[in-house]
Nucleic acid binder design. Structure first.
Lengths: 343, 343
DNA sequence: TTGAAAGCGCTAACAT
DNA sequence: ATGTTAGCGCTTTCAA
């Protein structure tokens, strides 16, 4: 049933060549070692038999598995996990690498065990990915072979990392709003416990300043739908003074709440007010009406770039470097933002 | 730098035994072949040298990779993908298997190529997982080694599958509502294009009938937040007659809309009305206030059971069977449902 | 230019 | 009860 596959030996016999000639041809090391017509015959024989080299055997010989391991802390609970894994998997596949995953299953779960297991399995490189952006103490095992961090940074600063450029994201989101003619933009939401918030607000204020506008108002609130609803409800109440032209929300959840508060207050979005989210959370940002304009967290990109960086190092036998790569958060324009109403 | 690891040879020398003795001890085949004290010495030597067998070498010899491949259609865009992969990864790890993933990257992308690639890599078994519940034509490659489907079923009915028991989910959700004293329960939402909807509604009506209640009203609407908002808004309007005791929503998104419609209408949830969701979509069902009571789609379970089923077949050398396993959708009680208000 | 030989590290059948 | 041997399928060095 495990239909016996042809080996290099079979191909060699079929083509009237030696096993080593087959090996060289399959690996592109044949020029200058095997005559052109022999190469051609081998290639034809391989095609005919549907021969494809046995990766385990070649891995054993080369001491390379062509596998990249990905260790995650609690991917299970994150709606974004799939995107990261898909990004890494696709990038890796493009270079003939496979991605193997190990989900540690909880925030507290120590990833060390899984890192060791993956190393035992002889992965060529390792990605340690966290669910939320933060700074971590890197387990020793990671330093023993090419590795990078995704969505987190090394407390010691000695390990390469790929993280979203939240400051730039905050700035560009604000620029989008400004370019639509909005002047009075209010920030809503985001508890103080998460690293991303201050960065986004920094970008927000920077854009405002660069446009010669006064610092933006920042309304404290949580990260969830209801937090956004409440904060926006208060903001839109006539007795609380003139309403803003636009609100920039700490997350898509907050923005969803704001969206519904606007509707409740009889405001048209984006006719009367523009609402901007952050995260591009699937099945949320694209599920509201109008859809949320938002800054996408580059999860797919983090996976892709992490894989590419490791593979580049592997394939060129170079060190991987300790730089932190900041990835742009792409602006996703849906329906919740539009031109300012007043002249 | 790839710090040379000890081999079975080293352990044998260290313990004064033969390579094969070491192999037997490490694989638990030693009893009756190696003397107890020798076994002990070998074990100690292995521990001392931190020896751990080389999986690639043993894989080559045994013609087993101890890897399970997972092919997904468009996991990237699904907020649920991570849970399935985590479930599979954890279950596999528990049996000494590794999960390798290949994301085909799109709905249309043909998974055949990825199945072949994984087979080339000699995975021992394969899981084909889809993002949304549906019936598919199984690629030939899948039939060539132990495989199961997750979240989809085989059009030909000859391949094992793990899918959520949506009928039971609909029934149990309704029973929960009935047990709280609700009598007039209305279904909201869910376009006709998705397989899950009719199943859930069937369960809904079955529970009602079993309790001796009249068939429930079904309100057409889409799957998204705004669909729920609009449908619930109409439902709660006084001019449309007495309002229901509870609404059962086709998805958490619809329920989120209903929740906000209730608030807008001045209704207390769950004091005045109970709202039930479906999916347990993270960062949504747990992000509203009150949190949504919902039926969780068993993504983690599908991953886990799929992996376990394959591994069981692999480890016992048995056929995998064509049965479809229906997985319970667990009831997740949060704050949006409560006892009926009236006596 | 070609082919033979030596392993990579392990396991399983075999002989002792 | 122990040790020896022959590969798994491949790559690479070395000799022809």
């Amino acid at each position: 049933m495990p239909n016996r596959r042809p080996t290099a030996q079979d191909v060699a016999k079929h083509a009237g060549a030696s096993r080593s000639a087959v090996s060289m041809v399959m690996n592109g090391n044949a020029d200058g070692n095997v005559s052109p017509d022999m190469q051609e015959r081998i290639r034809r024989a391989a095609a005919e038999l549907e021969y494809t080299p046995h990766p385990i055997a070649s891995g054993l010989r080369r001491q390379r598995s062509r596998m990249i391991g990905i260790v995650t802390d609690e991917a299970a609970s994150s709606p974004f996990a799939g995107r990261m894994l898909a990004g890494a998997s696709q990038a890796a596949a493009g270079h003939g690498y496979l991605t193997v995953i190990a989900d540690a299953g909880g925030p507290a779960a120590d990833t060390t065990h899984f890192i060791d297991e993956l190393r035992r399995r002889r992965v060529d490189g390792l990605i340690l990915a966290t669910q939320s952006l933060r700074t971590i103490v890197v387990p020793d095992g990671l330093r023993l072979q090419p590795s990078v961090l995704a969505n987190c940074r090394d407390a010691a600063g000695t390990m390469g990392a790929i993280i979203p450029d939240e400051v730039r994201g905050g700035r560009e989101a604000t620029e989008h709003l400004i370019s639509l003619g909005h002047r009075r933009i209010v920030w809503i939401g985001g508890g103080v416990d998460v690293d991303a918030r201050p960065a986004r607000i920094r970008g927000f204020q920077a854009a405002l300043a660069a446009a010669g506008l006064p610092p933006g108002e920042v309304v404290e609130a949580g990260w969830d739908i209801d937090d956004g609803f409440r904060a926006a409800e208060a903001l839109f109440a006539p007795e609380n003074g003139p309403r803003p032209d636009a609100v920039f929300c700490a997350s898509d959840r907050v923005a969803t709440g704001a969206l519904l508060a606007a509707r409740t207050a009889g405001l048209d979005v984006p006719g009367d007010i523009s609402i901007m989210g952050y995260d591009d959370q699937r099945h949320l940002a694209d599920a509201t009406v109008p859809g949320l304009t938002t800054m996408a967290l580059p999860h797919e990109g983090m996976g892709r770039v992490a894989a590419e960086r490791i593979i580049a190092a592997l394939d060129s036998n170079a060190e991987i470097g300790a730089e932190t790569t900041l990835l742009e958060c792409p602006l996703v324009v849906r329906g919740s933002t539009g031109p300012a109403a007043r002249a």
